[in-house]
């Protein structure tokens, strides 16, 4: 993990040296003196650290509620302890396992159908010669990233819903209608289409950067050796993007249990619980809406721990591929 902190962005050792000149023998300086010297810098970090301690670390301690039977009037400190009862109930709950299965299925569909699209779009856009066209297309495809899920689902509803624009056209031409917004059978593809509409354009940004960093001399040399454009794509472009592709894949796998919480939440009513219940919505409905706080907290803790394991595993996988992944070994 130390790599994150070590070289975050310090370009080379020259800056370290520059600092050391002004502060001689800093390694041997006592901590009191160093705190005194850096007090302004430390004070600057206080607001962020306090906010994170209160709103992120305290809730981390709050996972103890999942071993209690939380009572809103008795709070964290005085609620009765129940051991692992919440977890045994949870693991015997078919609705919970159903939401877990939904999460995995939707995640898998998105991995297969969503993941390649930004890569293809980036290669396509990179091959457009006209700079104005290129930046116009970029501006347009980035835009939906900034819309909320409520808006995106509303837009889909108005276009593809039962009374939406597409069904109106179908109906007018005497073709059958299909309300895809309320069809549980195809819901996983619908949410993937929504994710593509909202995020695929934004997703190309990292791949475009990878493409821009490929040395053009490689292409020229390959062309001189008689490689046509498809061979250049295969032997230069794709290997050039490999690092970023692996990194994105690792991130995706690490986040496999998070599948658009707000996206599911706003559609759960229309399409039904069977299709739209994922781990996060299960936690929200059982924990907050139905006031089974400890039960919801148990489901949340299950997801949190499993996600952490997934991130670490995905990172191992990246190392196996010979890439840096999220953090170095």
């Amino acid at each position: 993990m130390s790599a994150i902190i070590e070289d975050g962005a310090v370009p080379g050792a020259s800056r370290e040296a520059a600092r050391a000149d002004t502060v001689p023998a800093k390694r041997r300086t006592g901590w009191r003196i160093r705190i005194r010297r850096d007090r302004s810098l430390l004070i600057m970090t206080v607001p962020a650290v306090v906010l994170l301690l209160v709103f992120t670390y305290v809730p981390m301690l709050g996972v103890i509620t999942s071993f209690q039977s939380y009572d809103i009037y008795q709070g964290f400190l005085h609620s009765p302890w129940v051991g692992i009862a919440n977890f045994t109930n949870l693991f015997g709950d078919t609705l919970f396992w159903h939401s877990f299965a939904n999460t995995l299925v939707i995640s898998a569909v998105q991995l297969v159908l969503y993941f390649p699209i930004p890569i293809v779009l980036a290669v396509l856009l990179n091959s457009v010669m006209n700079g104005k066209v290129r930046s116009f297309v970029q501006s347009v495809v980035y835009l939906p990233h900034f819309f909320s899920w409520v808006l995106v689902v509303t837009i889909f509803q108005e276009m593809l819903g039962g009374a939406g624009a597409v069904n109106m056209v179908l109906r007018r031409h005497g073709l059958g209608t299909w309300n895809v917004m309320t069809d549980p059978a195809t819901f996983k593809y619908l949410v993937t289409a929504q994710a593509v509409w909202k995020e695929a354009g934004w997703g190309i940004i990292v791949f475009l950067a990878a493409l821009a960093a490929i040395d053009q001399a490689l292409y020229e040399a390959a062309a001189a050796d008689g490689a046509n454009r498809w061979r250049r794509l295969w032997h230069i472009t794709l290997p050039g993007m490999r690092g970023v592709i692996v990194l994105m894949l690792v991130l995706r796998l690490g986040n496999a249990l998070t599948v658009g919480f707000e996206q599911m939440l706003v559609q759960r009513q229309a399409v039904g619980r069977d299709a739209a219940e994922v781990l996060d919505t299960f936690t929200y409905y059982y924990g907050v809406v139905n006031n089974h706080f400890s039960y919801g907290a148990a489901a949340g803790l299950f997801k949190g721990v499993l996600s952490l394991v997934l991130v670490l595993a995905a990172n191992k996988l990246a190392h196996a591929f010979g890439e840096d992944g999220l953090f170095r070994k």
Partner: peptide
């Protein structure tokens, strides 16, 4: 002084959180 420790404290929150219910209760 301490910037690595503070940075670690921040980065940990990217990989683990208490979840919806404890945050709501807090």
């Amino acid at each position: 002084y301490g910037h690595r420790t503070i940075l670690m404290t921040l980065v940990v929150t990217m990989f683990f959180s208490g979840g919806i219910v404890p945050t709501f209760l807090l």
